[in-house]
Protein backbone atom coordinates (compact mmCIF):
# COMPACT_ATOMS: atom_id res chain seq x y z
CA UNK A 1 0.00 0.00 0.00
CA UNK A 2 1.10 3.56 -0.62
CA UNK A 3 0.45 6.48 1.66
CA UNK A 4 1.22 10.15 1.04
CA UNK A 5 1.63 12.44 4.03
CA UNK A 6 1.78 16.25 3.91
CA UNK A 7 3.64 17.98 6.73
CA UNK A 8 3.60 21.71 7.39
CA UNK A 9 4.75 24.07 10.11
CA UNK A 10 1.78 25.00 12.30
CA UNK A 11 0.29 28.39 11.48
CA UNK A 12 1.80 29.78 14.68
CA UNK A 13 5.34 28.90 13.53
CA UNK A 14 6.98 31.42 11.18
CA UNK A 15 8.11 29.77 7.93
CA UNK A 16 11.11 31.79 6.67
CA UNK A 17 11.35 29.75 3.44
CA UNK A 18 7.71 30.39 2.54
CA UNK A 19 8.11 34.04 3.48
CA UNK A 20 11.13 34.48 1.20
CA UNK A 21 9.42 32.73 -1.71
CA UNK A 22 6.29 34.87 -1.23
CA UNK A 23 8.43 38.04 -1.38
CA UNK A 24 10.15 36.77 -4.55
CA UNK A 25 6.84 35.99 -6.23
CA UNK A 26 5.60 39.48 -5.41
CA UNK A 27 8.82 40.94 -6.81
CA UNK A 28 8.13 39.04 -10.03
CA UNK A 29 4.84 40.83 -10.27
CA UNK A 30 2.52 38.23 -8.77
CA UNK A 31 0.71 40.80 -6.70
CA UNK A 32 -2.07 38.36 -5.92
CA UNK A 33 0.24 36.40 -3.58
CA UNK A 34 -0.76 36.83 0.06
CA UNK A 35 1.26 34.06 1.71
CA UNK A 36 3.35 30.98 0.91
CA UNK A 37 3.90 28.05 3.22
CA UNK A 38 6.41 25.35 2.33
CA UNK A 39 6.01 21.88 3.73
CA UNK A 40 7.15 18.40 2.85
CA UNK A 41 5.66 15.32 1.31
CA UNK A 42 6.50 11.85 2.53
CA UNK A 43 5.51 8.74 0.57
CA UNK A 44 5.48 5.55 2.60
CA UNK A 45 5.07 2.16 0.96
CA UNK A 46 3.91 -0.39 3.48
CA UNK A 47 2.35 -3.80 3.78
CA UNK A 48 -1.16 -3.88 5.14
CA UNK A 49 -4.23 -6.03 4.54
CA UNK A 50 -6.76 -3.25 4.86
CA UNK A 51 -6.61 0.47 4.25
CA UNK A 52 -7.82 1.06 7.79
CA UNK A 53 -4.83 -0.89 9.21
CA UNK A 54 -2.46 1.16 7.08
CA UNK A 55 -4.12 4.37 8.23
CA UNK A 56 -3.61 3.44 11.90
CA UNK A 57 -0.01 2.42 11.24
CA UNK A 58 0.76 5.71 9.46
CA UNK A 59 -0.78 7.63 12.36
CA UNK A 60 1.63 5.90 14.74
CA UNK A 61 4.59 6.63 12.44
CA UNK A 62 3.70 10.31 12.37
CA UNK A 63 3.38 10.38 16.13
CA UNK A 64 6.67 8.59 16.80
CA UNK A 65 8.98 10.08 14.20
CA UNK A 66 7.66 11.74 11.06
CA UNK A 67 6.02 14.75 12.69
CA UNK A 68 7.07 16.94 15.61
CA UNK A 69 3.75 18.06 17.13
CA UNK A 70 5.45 21.00 18.85
CA UNK A 71 5.96 22.75 15.51
CA UNK A 72 4.24 20.73 12.80
CA UNK A 73 0.87 19.39 11.76
CA UNK A 74 0.19 16.76 9.12
CA UNK A 75 -2.48 15.48 6.82
CA UNK A 76 -2.75 12.01 5.34
CA UNK A 77 -3.23 13.08 1.75
CA UNK A 78 -3.94 9.72 0.18
CA UNK A 79 -3.71 6.05 0.85
CA UNK A 80 -4.21 3.41 -1.81
CA UNK A 81 -3.55 -0.24 -2.46
Amino acid sequence: MKARIHIFYKDSVFDPQGNTVAASLQRLGFNTVKDVRIGKVIDVTLEAKRIEDARIEIGKMCEKLLVNPVIESYRLESIEA
Partner: peptide
Amino acid sequence: LCESGLLPGALVKNQKL
Protein backbone atom coordinates in the same frame (compact mmCIF):
# COMPACT_ATOMS: atom_id res chain seq x y z
CA LEU B 1 17.03 16.94 23.67
CA CYS B 2 14.02 18.90 22.38
CA GLU B 3 13.17 16.22 19.82
CA SER B 4 13.37 13.52 22.47
CA GLY B 5 11.02 15.44 24.74
CA LEU B 6 13.60 15.89 27.51
CA LEU B 7 13.35 19.64 26.96
CA PRO B 8 10.30 21.67 25.91
CA GLY B 9 9.96 23.52 22.59
CA ALA B 10 11.80 22.96 19.32
CA LEU B 11 14.58 24.48 17.22
CA VAL B 12 13.79 25.47 13.66
CA LYS B 13 15.37 27.33 10.75
CA ASN B 14 16.85 30.74 11.57
CA GLN B 15 14.54 33.61 10.75
CA LYS B 16 16.76 34.78 7.89
CA LEU B 17 17.52 31.21 6.79
